[in-house]
Amino acid sequence: MNPIAATQHRRRRPTPPRRGERLRAGLALAALVATGLALSACGTVEAAAPSCPDAMRLALVAQSVPTASYLPCLHRLPDGWQVTQVDIASGHTILALLSDRAEGRAVVVTLLPSCDAGSATAEAPRADGIRTSVYLNSISDRYAGTMYDVFPGGCITYRFDFARGPHIALMEELNDTAGLLARRELRLDLRRQFGVELDP
């Protein structure tokens, strides 16, 4: 076969030298704005909290401890407070309330079939038929302890841990927020609103 001279073919452009590519790429990199993405949690915890007038949500609390004659409920939250946990299951109800002045230490409200108030100091009852008491395990560095509401068929504990100083206002707000609803009242509400009997 006769060799074909390269000049008889169409001229092909050879690979040219590159200049300025690195500079342009560097400018592009510098101009590229890094986007940050964060996942946000769904704000449904507070919606799940049993508020005092909401019979249907309080019904679940009542069903968690069928013997409890009183149920914990929440009045309107003061400014700076939020509900961070709602755990309602057979045998207990747990709510966590956090104030922006509490340094991340939430108040844990627990409904149980029974509890041992031990050597807690009696206080004025928060409702008829309830024995209210407070046990303080710290008063000097921090104001920390547990408040008990003991009643027939159940018990509500309020575990708190506040810094000294704001603790007076925080305890007042806690007392205003954490309400109690008698089971018999809830029974009547449910019968009226839904035509159901809470207990067998």
Binding site: T44, A47, R57, I88
Partner: peptide, 20 residues
């Protein structure tokens, strides 16, 4: 959470449950 429905009423609930 939005509906917040209670468990069955008027009967004895025998099993364990959790949440709405």
């Amino acid at each position: 959470v939005a509906l917040g429905r209670m468990r069955p009423t008027g009967i004895v609930i025998l099993g364990d449950w959790e949440g709405w």
